[in-house]
Structure formats: structure tokens, C-alpha cells
């Protein structure tokens, strides 16, 4: 509805319209004796048409806005200094990564607080080293402010350490897991994403693993069950909302006052801001 109004006025308008319909119908039947013709008031028809036109224009306007934003990036002139700086940043990131892997010793995955990890890609630079880019694609964190659920294993934690400046991760609680899946979850079936508006699609995709409804999916993700891998791959990365005041998103680790890296339980506060 374009102009939602209290139902009392709508009811009153409907009553008036109904009376008009009845009167005209009575007159027609009295005069001609034929069957009653459908009657809708002219202003109602006009309003309906205006609403439809507005919807069409709104859709076109949004599409044009998206196209304009996409075209802004093209045709920009890059100077040689930009290329040099980009290359040096890549090399520096790579060297830092190797140093980080050498110096930092990860605790075993079994000693962590939870087996479920939620990783969010934070806004960062475009100058990614190919190695990091490959790992981010493997984790499905290719877009800024997207998140995925991961199982806390040694291999996963090592990968997260490799790409630490570009992500933040932690251990979500059941409330946030449920909120994310219910509100932002998108399934992936037949090479196409779709919103989780029906349990039939979930049963069709994951029924062989005993997951037949949305709540089963939440339970499997939250408890890191035996079919976590299939359930997690079924869910597309969650698109999170940019907050009103843009986050600073510094590249320093969270414990050092920045925004990247392991937040442990503090990830819940961040998720509540973004979801």
C-alpha cells in the first residue's frame, strides 16, 4: 500500500462506496431488468493507476541509480604512481602475512569457546595479494560487509589468520544465528539464490540430511551438527547492512584497538549493529 491509513477510515470509505454501488445497481435493475454491471468509482481507478505508475517509475529509478553507480568506476584515469603504490602495498601485505604466520601461534581449535565461527568481511583496500584473494574467495567473502558461518577447525583458523586484516570474526550466540538466518538467509539451489520464504525449498535441498524446515537449519548451524558443511554451503553469504555512522574499520587487530581479527564474543554486538 502506498498510503496506509487507519482501517476505520478505510472501512468508512468502503461503506460509502458500497452504498453508492447498491444505489446504482438498484436503479439499473429497476430500469432495465438486466444483470448488474461491476461499478468502481472513477477516483479509485485513477488512484490505482497512479500507484501502478509510481511503482514502475520507482523500479526504473532504482535500476538507473544502480547503473550509474556501476558506471562511476569506469573510465577513471590511473596515474603511474597509483600502479606503483598498488604494487608496493601488495608486496607489503604479503610480507606481513608471512611474518604473521611465522610469529603468531594459534591455539588448538578444541580449546576455543565455541565450534561455530561467523566471519565478516570489513571494508578494506582493493590491493589484495592473489594469495589472499584466493583464500577470501574460498571462504566466500568476496564482497564488503558479507558474512559466512564457519566451523572452527585448525585449517579454518589458519585461513582466517592469513586474511586477518580484511575480516573480523567471532563466536555468535543462538539469538544472532537465528536472526541472521531468518532475516538475511538466502538459499542456493539449482545454481540460483532464493529467499527462504518456504520450507519446501529447504526440504528439497537438504531433506536427505534430515533438515526439513528453517528451524532445523538454525539448529544445525548453531550446534555445528554432522551436516554442518552441507547446511553452510546451502546458505549464501549474508549481506549485512551498513550502519548509519560508518564504522572506522581500522586494520589493527581488535584487541589492539582496531576492528579486524578475532572478537570472540564481542562479535554479537557487531552483528546486532549490522543486522
Amino acid at each position: 500500500p502506498r498510503n496506509p491509513s487507519p482501517s476505520r477510515r478505510s472501512a468508512a470509505a468502503a461503506v460509502v462506496q458500497g452504498e453508492a454501488c447498491v444505489e446504482i445497481a438498484a436503479t439499473m435493475m429497476a430500469e432495465e431488468g438486466t444483470q448488474q454491471l461491476p461499478y468502481v468509482r472513477e477516483t479509485v481507478l485513477k488512484k490505482r493507476k497512479v500507484n501502478e505508475d509510481w511503482a514502475v517509475k520507482n523500479r526504473e529509478r532504482k535500476a538507473a541509480k544502480r547503473q550509474r553507480r556501476r558506471d562511476d568506476g569506469k573510465g577513471a584515469i590511473k596515474r603511474p604512481e597509483d600502479f606503483v603504490r598498488e604494487f608496493r602495498n601488495k608486496e607489503l601485505d604479503f610480507v606481513r602475512m608471512k611474518t604473521r604466520l611465522k610469529v603468531r601461534k594459534l591455539p588448538p581449535a578444541e580449546t576455543l569457546n565455541s565450534k561455530l565461527v561467523f566471519a565478516i568481511r570489513i571494508p578494506g583496500t582493493m590491493d589484495l595479494h592473489p594469495h589472499m584473494r584466493r583464500i577470501l574467495r574460498k571462504l566466500r567473502l568476496t564482497q564488503v560487509l558479507t558474512g559466512v558461518f564457519l566451523k572452527a577447525t585448525d585449517a579454518t583458523m589458519k585461513r582466517l589468520l592469513v586474511v586477518e586484516p580484511f575480516i573480523t570474526y567471532g563466536f555468535p550466540n543462538l539469538k544472532n544465528v537465528k536472526d541472521l538466518i531468518y532475516k538475511k538467509g538466502r538459499g542456493f539451489l539449482d545454481k540460483e539464490p532464493f529467499p527462504l520464504t518456504s520450507n519446501d525449498l529447504i526440504e528439497k535441498a537438504l531433506g536427505e540430511y534430515g533438515i526439513i524446515c528453517l528451524e532445523d537449519l538454525v539448529h544445525e548451524i548453531a550446534s555445528v551438527g554432522p551436516h554442518f558443511r552441507e547446511a553452510s554451503n546451502f546458505l549464501m553469504p549474508f549481506k549485512l547492512k551498513c550502519p548509519e555512522r560508518r564504522l572506522q574499520m581500522k586494520k589493527k587487530p581488535f584487541k589492539d584497538g582496531g576492528d579486524s581479527g578475532n572478537r570472540e564474543d564481542k562479535i554479537n554486538e557487531l552483528i546486532e549493529k549490522l543486522n
Binding site: 502506498r2 496506509p4 511503482a55 532504482k62 532475516k183
Partner: peptide, 19 residues
Amino acid sequence: HALQQVLTDDVDFNVMLTF
């Protein structure tokens, strides 16, 4: 219902947000 709600672009959210 406790399922996901899909927002359509046919709705003027400014009016709804004011209400």
C-alpha cells in the same frame, strides 16, 4: 509468519516509516 519476508520495490517505505 516466522519465515523470511521479501521486500518489494512497489512499496513506498517513507510513508510506512513515518507511521
